[in-house]
């Protein structure tokens, strides 16, 4: 389902058991003059959501005391989700909504496709049919605007 920024923010706020998943492109991409990882951090801070840092993103999060973040392999995360008993300490309870940002399309497609039990949201600028919720196809400028709007709506 394609979501507008306000719907995205509403869904994130509504789902209490949520997890942000930050991929390797977060380190490399600037969107609207801002590092993509900064958007992840903003969302995490505004919603008090822990971050699973995949790829090499943890290196840039480790000193940030305002957020809870942990380095994991993305495959490990989706693997733990397929068993009934949730034991990964990043969250005390099994997350119900995973919000992905900063992934090559093929990788995030693979990741969300494996998740059979739980909701997924992809906030990259390519529409991801396999996710429960996805941002639409966007240019860089549109993407920056979209993410800024999500942040603004989370602040409300």
């Amino acid at each position: 389902m394609i979501l507008a920024p306000d719907e995205t923010a509403k869904l994130i706020k509504e789902e209490k058991r949520r997890l942000l998943v930050a991929g390797s492109i977060c380190n490399d991409l600037e969107v609207g003059g801002k590092n993509l990882l900064d958007y992840v951090v903003d969302i995490a801070k505004l919603t008090d959501t822990p971050i699973v840092a995949t790829g090499s993103t943890m290196f840039h999060l480790k000193d940030n005391k305002e957020i809870k973040a942990k380095k994991m392999m993305a495959a490990d995360l989706v693997n733990f989700l397929r068993v009934e008993k949730w034991e990964e300490p990043i969250t005390p309870e099994r997350p119900e909504l995973l919000v992905f940002l900063g992934y090559y399309p093929d990788i995030v497609k693979m990741l969300v496709s494996t998740i059979r039990d739980g909701k997924t949201m992809v906030l990259d600028n390519r529409y991801m049919n396999e996710a429960t919720y996805s941002a639409p196809d966007m240019s860089f400028n549109e993407w920056a605007e979209y993410l800024d709007n999500v942040i603004d709506n989370l602040k409300k």
Binding site: G23, S24, A75, M110
Partner: peptide, 8 residues
């Protein structure tokens, strides 16, 4: 197991 980066 798939990885995203050389680092991983």
């Amino acid at each position: 197991i798939p990885v995203e980066t050389v680092d991983e």
